[in-house]
Amino acid sequence: MKPCVSRKRGFTLIELLVVIAIIAILVALLLPAVQSAREAARRTECKNKLKQIGLALHNYHDTHSVYPPAALPSSDGLSWHVMILPQLDLEGLYTQFEFGAQAGGRYSSAVNLPLVQKDPVRAFLCPSGTKETADDVAANYTTHYYGIMGPTGTNATTGVAYSENTAGSHGGFSREGLFQIYLSKKERDILDGTSNTLVVGEDSWTARNGNPTRYRAWTRGGNVNDFMAPAKNLAQQINADYTTLFNDMSFGSNHPGGAHFLLGDGTVHFISENIDYNLYLGAGSIAGTENGSITSP
């Protein structure tokens, strides 16, 4: 009895190994959780950025009684992003831009081009999107938030084709959305209801499935009957990784499973990549009288 009591009891090798194995399993469990927590934080930040863009658009509408046009009327003019800078507390940057219908109003003019190359404008960049520069000129910073020109294809409720200017070889221009080239829309034009209409979407994915990104400078506008940089048609599924036709570039993100969209009422929703395509198209038009709601499909 006595020697047994006095003997100091240690741990056997097996016990130690088992403890180490358990700790290893717990750490292995924890690491992905930490990573997904980081992604969740980035996702929330992205959502907030779109929310701020929504507030800026509403403040712009309060001031000017219209929403900004997708692009100013000049070949390669300035984008709607530039026009809402004062509403995003970036008045200082806004006043440095040169506007006008002539060559001076181009995004690539001697005054305007350096402004897109100096610093990225974080208000227009999703933290999960790792590519922050344009694909044509690497010195230019880009944006991850694009206006919605409207759907292309057929209205599922009425059976009528969506109105579209099919001129040019970059996918055409839908006439059904809030952001139109050289043309401002008002809130009263959103007859489908602001809480049913997609206004701005996220396009922050990086090259995947063999499809490169085609980002352009965030200040770049469009050219009538040709191309449109700061706004896109709804012509592909979310996360379709599609960039062949420039104006039909698919919305999508590096957040798992979908992308953020700003609605006309200022709310931001995460829309699944598996959403019914015709419901998605219907939400992109401002006055298509489609059935169904994008927020409660």
Binding site: G153, T154, Q237, A240, T244, D276, Y277, N278
Partner: peptide, 22 residues
């Protein structure tokens, strides 16, 4: 070269996501 997109035909009652290929 080109792209093809399959869209469920709502006029014939089909629903679902679209998909595309090169």
């Amino acid at each position: 070269a080109g792209t093809i997109t399959f869209v469920p035909d709502a006029s014939q009652g089909n629903q679902g996501p679209a998909s595309n290929a090169t």
